[in-house]
Computed example of a mutant assay.
Amino acid sequence: MAAVRSSISEKIVILKIQALEVITPRACEKKYWLLSRKSGTTHKRKKEGYKKMTYRMIYLCMAASAMLMAAAPLMAFDLRLADPAQAAKLSDAVILDARPPKEWQQGHIPGALSFSWENYTRTEEDGVKWRILPPEELARALGAMGISHTDAVLVYGDADTSWGGEGWVVWMLAWLGHEGPVYFLDGGIQSWQADNRPMTADAGKNRAPTTYEVNLAPQVNISREQIDARKDKINLVDTRGFFKEWMLGRLPGAVHLGWEKFYQGRHRQVISADQLKTLLENKGVDLNKPVVYYCTAGIRSGYTWLVHQLSGLPGAVNYEGGTEEWAQKHPLTR
């Protein structure tokens, strides 16, 4: 890409290409227009630049998409598993409770902030439900809560009422390019309470607002168009319920592994790397190819992505759009 001679606006697109989470010709055109505005180009020049945009830029976008997908295992994201004793020592970490707000209100780890996926998703204009908010909106929300991109963060849930939302929160931080270490409380609130750790219903003090800088990591997400283009080069794993969801329709070529298989024991602790590898191999998953987890809208599959990431196995991706997005353009198969 560096060898291609480009206009100023084209160079901006190339430099910002890593921030494209859904890379399609239409998305490239939209990003080109927005970045032209951001660069201070006049309205007349913007209009002319938009009209003169060539397919070379579209091909660059698509090529960048393929490169980013291939680079998925190289993502720099500091994710660590913590037991209650280790978590209790993280005095400087921001604590995020990923359960529904009503659960947080009834009792949470002292100092924990409520951060439920339900408050950070929306229905898009095309009717697709539970889509994650745009990165800039998430950054504003995190900054308003006093969370910086360099902060250490401890995330927990219950792998129950949260529908795996704790995994979605960790995945979201990875997608935003969080630079500080992210700790995941193994066994969630159940293990914390079983270890006789303190709980409170006190909302606590507000943190001073700060700036959260985004350095988007599109390699942990995938679009419907990318799945179409790479369907022979990826594994698709459906993490939804078997009878009420999988049997009624799924993505072509997918195998089924319900998200409940990714935790174990009464505290719902994450399974080991060996257990995960066995699960995947028993389903015929080729671990030399990226594993794309999906559910209805990326929540439960966010949890399975988390477990995969913790295992150290290569190539985990969360299809955030899920069957909600897929079914807008393609029928689900049986």
Rank of each mutant, 00 (worst) to 15 (best):
T150F: 04
S116H: 15
E137W: 02
H149W: 06
A141P: 00
L142E: 09
P135V: 06
G127F: 07
R122L: 12
M145D: 06
R140K: 15
G127L: 10
M145V: 01
E125S: 14
E136N: 12
L154K: 07
L138M: 14
G157M: 05
W130P: 00
K129T: 13
E125Y: 03
E137C: 01
R131L: 10
G143I: 08
E137S: 10
W130Y: 13
G143M: 09
D151C: 02
A152E: 14
K129V: 09
L133I: 04
V155P: 01
E125D: 13
E137D: 14
Y156I: 06
R131F: 01
D126H: 01
P134D: 09
L142G: 04
G146M: 05
R122F: 15
V155M: 06
G146F: 01
V128A: 14
W117S: 11
G127R: 08
A159N: 10
E136Q: 13
S148M: 03
A152W: 02
M145Y: 03
L154R: 05
S116C: 15
T121D: 06
M145W: 04
G127S: 08
M145Q: 13
D158C: 07
E118H: 07
A139Y: 07
T121P: 00
G146E: 07
S148D: 08
T150E: 14
G127Q: 09
I132T: 13
E118S: 10
A141R: 13
R122N: 04
D151Y: 02
E124N: 10
T150S: 12
G143F: 06
Y120I: 13
T123A: 06
L142P: 01
S116A: 14
A144P: 00
H149Q: 13
K129I: 07
S148K: 12
M145C: 04
L142R: 07
V155F: 05
G143T: 06
A152L: 02
P135N: 08
E125A: 15
D126N: 15
T123H: 03
W117F: 15
R140M: 08
L154D: 07
E118I: 09
T121F: 03
V153L: 05
T150N: 09
E118W: 04
D151R: 03
R122E: 14
N119M: 09
H149E: 15
N119R: 12
E136S: 11
P135L: 06
I132K: 11
A144G: 08
R131V: 04
A139S: 12
